[in-house]
């Protein structure tokens, strides 16, 4: 069975581990670069993208993660995780893995009082909507050629995929709906 890691430097990594657990997939908390050799794919959780980015730099994990991504291993980033995967972050030089061809704007809906929930339709995973929990969420302002938009909320992409990389601006890990995590696991080579 594929071994899935969840980056556990900061954020809601425990919630992702619980999702994987429900799907019967054991997950490892990843805090060391050496652990990247032992896993087949990685989830980057929600949290504070600046904090996680700084810790990635301080503990020498940024380049190994770029290599991990370019090697074709699946990575799924939610919210802060999506920001860390993005190549471009509007108006920011913050540290990032920068492998996914998208441009994001942080906190684009506003402060916490503007956080919201909405039904998100994702034809690829089924007819019934996913309940999207958006918390100080970023907006994906631009996607390059080769990036598939799997779902939009209004005009803005909220779930995108480029080869082995998956990113959502919302938090399926805060709901009981495991379909997006199951879809992520389907990206693993058999």
């Amino acid at each position: 069975m594929a071994k899935v890691g969840v980056l556990a430097l900061q954020g809601d990594f425990e919630k992702h581990i619980q999702m994987l657990d429900r799907l019967g997939v054991p997950a490892v908390e990843v805090r060391e670069k050496s652990q990247l050799d032992e896993i087949d794919g990685l989830i980057i959780p929600g949290g504070e993208s600046t904090t996680i980015g700084k810790l990635l730099v301080r503990y020498g994990m940024l380049e190994p993660l770029q290599t991990f991504a370019r090697g074709g291993k699946p990575i799924y980033g939610t919210c802060a995780g999506a920001i860390l995967l993005a190549k471009e972050i509007e108006g920011s030089h913050q540290d990032r893995i920068g492998v996914l061809d998208i441009t994001v704007r942080r906190n684009a809906y506003g402060r916490q009082i503007e956080s919201f929930e909405a039904d998100i339709f994702i034809p690829r995973i089924g007819e019934l909507p996913v309940r999207g929990v958006f918390i100080r969420a970023p907006v994906i302002k631009h996607v390059a050629d080769g990036v598939e938009v799997l779902s939009r909320f209004g005009d803005d992409p909220v779930l995108v995929k480029q080869g082995n990389l998956l990113a959502s601006t919302f938090h399926p890990e805060l709901t009981n709906d495991t379909r997006i995590h199951a879809f992520f696991l389907s990206l693993f080579p058999v």
């Binding site: 556990a8 430097l9 954020g11 809601d12 929600g46 949290g47 916490q112 956080s115 918390i135």
Partner: peptide
């Protein structure tokens, strides 16, 4: 209510920080 999940959700995002 729905807002509850959003409130607790932000607290979840601050974990480990």
């Amino acid at each position: 209510k729905a807002t509850w999940r959003n409130k607790v959700g932000l607290a979840e995002m601050l974990k480990g920080g």
